[in-house]
């Protein structure tokens, strides 16, 4: 068995003058959940489009499920995609959409009908199964879109911002579903703007900015990169005034607090916590921005 489900080496892509991807190296082990983070316009969707054969890269070697990306037909047999923007047929009903994709995925009519019913249930769409998608709310459309890419399980699943627009309950349900897929051996490659999502779900995370990978590792590894504790300064209404990365030793934390005592307004409080993914993300991507601004 191969160990890397997805492998990119020196991946480059420019749109006109704009170098969107400027040498990306990433490797995703089979059966893991991988999260790609980055600010808007960083090239997350572009990477997913390249991996799913929709966009041709300018250079670099890309392998998906053991096939070079130029062997499109073999790659397509191994992948399933939910893109950033809904890919549903608005004229058809939810059920018709699911059955159509089922038939196109090689299920018989009966299998496609059964699978459609199962997915409608899982994604809480049974009540709207016979309504045209045109009349769906944004979240319902998104859930159908996700269901469509799960009609048959391919070894690799791409999800571009899968939980954007979902309510908290649907989001949790999708997370559970993704974990279950990974347990069954599906490799999940997702992008997200919700850092908590990457934290909760992903075995490995990569952050891209300015066309390059600026950090890679598990959530814990990334958090430890920006050092130790974060001191939060809060006012009397418990609103955060400042967050100060404070190092990891007691001495460093005490020094930070001593300085705060002199400058903080009367009546403010502090709170010491471990850094969140958000701290990591802001630190990594602003650093990149500052560098590219010079």
């Amino acid at each position: 068995m191969m160990t890397a489900a997805i492998e990119m080496k020196g991946l480059r892509k420019a749109f006109g003058q704009h170098n969107v991807l400027d040498g990306i190296d990433l490797s995703v082990p089979a059966g893991s959940i991988f999260a790609l983070l980055g600010p808007n316009g960083a090239g997350k969707t572009t990477i997913i489009n390249i991996l799913s054969t929709l966009v041709t890269p300018d250079s670099g070697s890309v392998r998906v499920a053991g096939h070079d990306i130029t062997e499109k037909e073999s790659v397509k047999r191994s992948i399933s995609l939910t893109g950033q923007f809904a890919a549903v047929d608005e004229v058809l009903t939810a059920e018709e959409n699911l059955r159509m994709i089922g038939r196109l995925s090689g299920l018989t009519k009966a299998e496609a009908r059964i699978r459609a019913a199962e997915l409608l249930e899982i994604f809480d769409l049974t009540a709207s199964a016979r309504k045209r998608v045109k009349t769906f709310s944004g979240g319902m459309r998104r859930r159908l879109d996700l269901a469509l890419s799960l009609v048959v399980n391919r070894p690799i699943l791409f999800l571009d911002e899968p939980t954007t627009g979902l309510d908290a309950q649907s989001r949790r349900a999708l997370w559970d579903h993704i974990r279950q897929l990974a347990r069954n051996g599906v490799t999940v490659f997702l992008t997200t703007q919700y850092l908590e999502e990457a934290d909760q779900l992903a075995d490995a995370i990569a952050v891209i900015a300015g066309g390059r990978v600026v950090a890679e590792g598990t959530a814990d590894q990334l958090k430890s990169r920006i050092g130790g504790e974060v001191v939060e300064l809060r006012d009397q209404q418990d609103e955060i005034i400042r967050e100060i990365p404070a190092g990891s030793s007691i001495r460093e934390v005490k020094k930070t607090i001593d300085e705060l005592v002199l400058t903080a307004p009367e009546g403010s409080r502090i709170n010491i916590r471990r850094p969140s993914m958000e701290d990591v993300f802001v630190a990594l991507t602003t650093q990149e921005r500052e560098e590219s601004a010079i």
């Binding site: 499920a65 047999r77 191994s78 038939r103 196109l104 995925s105 090689g106 699978r115 199962e118 899982i122 009609v151 048959v152 399980n153 391919r154 070894p155 279950q180 897929l181 069954n184 051996g185 599906v186």
Partner: peptide, 11 residues
């Protein structure tokens, strides 16, 4: 709930 993984199947 999960359908079996069928990598090579297509219509």
């Amino acid at each position: 709930m999960i359908a079996q993984i069928k990598p090579a199947q297509s219509a």
